[in-house]
Design a protein around this nucleic acid. Structure first.
Length: 183
DNA sequence: CTTTCGATGATCT
DNA sequence: GATCATCGAAAGG
């Protein structure tokens, strides 16, 4: 069973919450996401296809990984349809599997800080540009459906200047593992 | 608790 | 040459 990667990003993003994301058996529950679309000035795909964002214009259900601020990696799930340029940014996980491995990679103990933020997620999972364009339906990736329904909250996306009013950030209400509290 | 700032490099104009 | 879908440490209330 897999998420509906053919959906528009603002619909896929909330639906991903509660799924378990593992990379080589390490990861946890997705608790925070953001949607980015082609007609969205905040999106890397807004200006059309380039070398960096090529994976965003590839088939749905694949990874788009980019370098942020010259230091961090960020992981997205491509969605909608091939050639469109839509994706969902994975912003935070509640760690459940491979705690020690994540603590080693992050150089931290506190489970709360292991994957609370997109750069932290990628570092904890060992994701970098080698994962750009890889399919999400087979190893090293594994996705497991939610155990039950969760309360979902939405709000403005973080760290953007354009289209800042779109409420395309989604989180599980009350989770302690968000990059920032929802509002 | 809050705000500020430096790190660091690819990407795009 | 400016702009980042960020993080962590430091400084101030």
């Amino acid at each position: 069973m897999l998420p509906d990667f053919d959906a528009a990003p603002e619909r896929l993003a909330p639906r991903l919450l509660g799924w378990t994301l593992l990379v080589d058996g390490v990861g946890g529950l997705i608790v925070e996401t953001e949607a980015y679309d082609a007609d969205d000035p905040a999106s890397h795909s807004f200006g059309g296809r380039t070398a960096r964002n090529a994976a965003m214009f590839g088939p749905p259900g694949h990874a788009y990984v980019y370098r942020s601020y010259g230091l961090h990696w960020c992981l997205n799930f491509v969605c909608r349809e091939a050639g469109h340029g839509a994706a969902v940014l994975i912003r935070a996980l509640e760690p459940t599997q491979g705690l020690v491995r994540m603590q080693q990679r992050r150089g931290l103990d506190n489970p709360r800080l292991l994957a609370a933020g997109p750069g932290r997620v990628a570092q904890a999972l060992g994701v970098d540009d080698r994962f750009d364009g890889l399919p999400l339906d087979r190893p090293p990736f594994e996705l497991q459906p939610p155990a039950g329904a969760a309360d979902i909250v939405s709000g403005p996306r973080i760290g953007i200047t354009k289209a800042a009013e779109r409420p395309w950030r989604f989180g599980i209400a009350g989770s302690r593992f968000l990059s920032r509290p929802m509002r």
